[in-house]
């Protein structure tokens, strides 16, 4: 087998990137272009499909195959493409409006079917391309052009949605955490099945500081928890805090004489109960980052291919003559009949 040696540059298209200066999308694009050469997949076998929104311009900047499709529908195109051609590495690039508002239904069904695609949701909690209306992830009370008195809608939690929709790989990272993002993208790519990655992303123009307390270098260590499979759940600037299991669920403790690292709960990525609880964390509990849930289940494509193979064993290779002549037939001869 030949090793394909590609570099970041191989994945840079000839199109000028047209996001606003300082947009979090640049960092995500850069990481993706670094991750892909590590996958060992020929770039002609990689397809990026997006919907509509700022993030959805992404495919134009990748020197792979790509479709900039229609609002919210990228998962549907990705599903058809992956079923038609299972050898492709298919990525969906979407945003909080694209995936959770107009395309909410498609996200649910791509997840539950376990279509073997990687969906990266850029969550900036705002509508950028339409110039600053609230999104389905905007916190209650957010004042925007379309909500001058503050939103009165309760926001969606993308990780909870993905878990409830039976996604088999659910992870979260932040646009400013380059190394972390790199690692998460790699794991998402290597997961067989539907990979859901939420990237907390800043919008400098319409929602600057969207994730300030989780992204700011000075604040984030006390507000984020970096999950690692099989490891105790520890966090804090000095790794001085952790989560313990109590009858009421996970609670924060300070690591001192009373609690040591051995008392902390361990992150089991296969536990849906744990993943769900983590997804519901609210301040002052830390925001979970990393792979929150990861299990293996038959993919949609495997199921379809399996049925095709089974059908051929049971019924033989399809034969048009047999298809046309199925059921009752009768002959009409030249002079009259039968």
């Amino acid at each position: 087998m030949t090793t394909i040696q590609l570099t970041r540059k191989d994945f840079v298209s000839d199109q000028t990137v047209r996001w606003c200066p300082g947009c979090g999308d640049y960092a995500i694009l850069a990481q993706m272009q670094k991750v892909l050469p590590e996958l060992g997949i020929p770039k002609e076998n990689i397809v990026f499909i997006s919907g509509i929104g700022c993030s959805s311009r992404f495919p134009y900047y990748m020197n792979t195959y790509g479709i900039h499709s229609i609002h919210g529908r990228a998962p549907t195109l990705a599903t058809g493409l992956k079923l038609a051609n299972p050898d492709l590495s298919v990525w969906v690039i979407t945003g909080d409006g694209d995936a959770l508002s107009i395309g909410g239904n498609h996200l649910l069904h791509a997840a539950r079917r376990n279509v073997d695609i990687n969906l990266i949701l850029f969550n900036n909690r705002i509508y950028g391309l339409t110039k600053g209306q609230y999104s389905p992830t905007s916190p209650r009370g957010t004042r925007t052009k379309s909500s001058p008195m503050g939103t009165i809608e309760w926001p969606l939690n993308p990780i909870s949605i993905a878990l409830a929709a039976e996604a088999t790989f659910v992870a979260r990272t932040v646009d400013v955490l380059q190394k972390h993002m790199h690692d998460i993208f790699l794991q998402a790519a290597n997961h067989k099945g539907f990979s859901f990655v939420e990237v907390l992303q800043n919008c400098v123009i319409f929602n600057d500081g969207a994730w300030e307390q989780y992204a700011n270098r000075k604040l984030r260590d006390d507000n984020d928890i970096f999950l690692e499979p099989g490891k105790p759940m520890v966090f804090g600037r000095y790794s001085d805090k952790g989560l313990i299991q109590t009858p009421d669920g996970l609670e924060i403790v300070e690591l001192n004489d009373e609690y040591t690292i051995d008392d902390l709960a361990v992150h089991h990525v296969e536990s849906l109960e744990l993943a769900w609880e983590l997804s519901r964390f609210q301040y002052p509990k830390p925001l979970p980052l990393g792979v929150i849930y990861n299990v293996t289940r038959e993919t949609f494509g495997e199921g379809v291919r399996g049925q095709i193979a089974d059908a051929k064993v049971l019924k033989g290779e399809g034969d048009l003559y047999k298809l046309y002549n199925a059921g009752e037939t009768w002959q009409v001869k030249k002079n009259g009949r039968k």
Binding site: I67, P75, T76, L77, T79, G80, L81, H106
Partner: peptide, 14 residues
């Protein structure tokens, strides 16, 4: 909508 989207995706895939 999804049915139509899937058809577009499959056509892109050949």
């Amino acid at each position: 909508i999804a049915a139509m989207g899937s058809v577009v995706g499959a056509a892109f895939g050949g």
